[in-house]
Design a protein around this nucleic acid. Structure first.
Lengths: 237, 237
DNA sequence: ATTGAGATTTTGGCATACCTCAATTATAAA
DNA sequence: TTTATAATTGAGGTATGCCAAAATCTCAAT
């Protein structure tokens, strides 16, 4: 089963791949909120469901392979090669999520775990075929950008709906949803608050209360927590 | 990622699954040629590319789980549960092979290794979807029967072309090809000797020489070795 | 029925990968 | 300086694999 050149010649374990991907994703989250690049051991441990000691061990191994840099007691960061590899994995994952919804017929709340299992198993050829089948897509079902085969990842500047000022005249487009929680995804689906939908933020209850959101056909109340994971783009009017 | 009840509650390793599948397949081969049910340790070791000692260890583990019975110095056999599980894996593998050729667009010589990697990773739901997409198929691209979800496996009585008596008036249908060797598969494809093709056995050179085979459009010579892996069915005339 | 050659299996020592837990050490804030 | 938090180390466990040597079995010939 031909893997990518990088993957096969490093002959990194599945576990190692998981670490790389987790580092990449945690760093993305840090960049969105704080301004840091350094991923901490504990954050990784929590994300991977593993004891902190285990992380130190694997991080050392990845550092030996020059996939990450490790400043003890400070944090971990990806090297260029490590990032390249992480992007490859993220590409696999997101292409698979889209494939599973569009072609195989799963709901968007069902695909994350399956993509996690499959991303390690598919060949580059398989990746190429489904990429073609899907018409070289740029976004997955949750609106997450899919890195190109060359490792480029881009996307519009987005802000969470939670940060917006209520204004019945302003129209936003939901672009991305920062969650993989099936329950939440099903809930959003039910409210029709899915990527591509146009909405208006009508009002916000004081002291961190609910937000009133209008779609084209209905209105609903959502918690600030939910509004925090909904990334929107301003779209005219 | 929901696996089958059996697979998840036993929480068998990937390696264990490979052993089960290998035992199942070796037993099939034994039944076709000899009359034995017992798979030997060495045969398993050779099949799995592993030292005989390693097999003993894993077989013990499988015996503890009551998936196989082990008569020392005699061989290994599957229990009912073990066979059920092996059939599930074989079903995954063969469905995937068909899916990869029919839907994803791979050639029949490319799919075996990929199916091997994927068969451990797919969920039961994924299996169900591709089964439906393919119209509940009974055979994979090589003509191998696909077990049903209930674990039934059937197929017509077949004999290798190598065992047939030359007769220009007798028409056979190629039903199954007992190989996964990519080189051989490409060769057969080139000669159009693929499952579903009608052929006649024109002649056979003496002393284990080549067989002359006629398709509807051409004639070719094939070695007894190749004729041994081509299973055919008599089909009138 | 016995025997001995050859094949098969088991044993034991070892290696790797990944994990946990508990003790220790470093960092940074009070 | 003290203390809380976080990270690292080291010992130990599980799972899988290897090899080589010892033990055991089978089978055919006597």
């Amino acid at each position: 089963m031909p893997k990518s050149q990088l993957r096969s010649q490093l002959n990194l374990s599945e576990s190692g791949e998981d670490y790389l991907k987790a580092i990449f994703q945690l760093r993305e989250e840090l960049r969105r909120t704080h301004d840091s690049d350094l991923v901490t051991t504990n954050a990784l441990a929590a994300r991977l469901g593993v004891a902190p000691g285990s992380v130190t061990g694997m991080v050392k191994k990845l550092a030996d392979l020059e996939l990450v840099t490790h400043a003890p007691y400070r944090g971990v960061n990806l090297t260029e090669v490590g990032e390249r590899l992480a992007l490859e994995l993220v590409r696999h994952h997101r292409l698979l999520e889209l494939y599973l919804t569009r072609v195989v017929g799963f709901r968007w709340d069902e695909v994350h775990d399956q993509a996690d299992a499959l991303e390690h198993a598919i060949s580059e050829e398989f990746e190429d075929r489904i990429d073609e089948m899907l018409g070289n897509p740029a976004y997955d079902p949750h609106g997450d950008p899919i890195p190109t085969k060359e490792g480029q990842i881009t996307g519009p500047e987005l802000a969470p709906l939670a940060a917006m000022i209520p204004d019945p005249d302003r129209i936003y487009t939901i672009v991305r949803v920062l969650t993989q929680d099936p329950t939440l995804l099903r809930y959003l689906d039910q409210l029709r608050l899915t990527p591509g939908t146009h909405i208006r933020l009508m009002a916000r209850a004081p002291f961190g209360g609910d937000l009133r959101v209008a779609t084209e056909t209905a209105e609903c109340l959502i918690s600030p927590l939910i509004a925090g994971v909904m990334l929107v783009m301003h779209s005219g009017h």
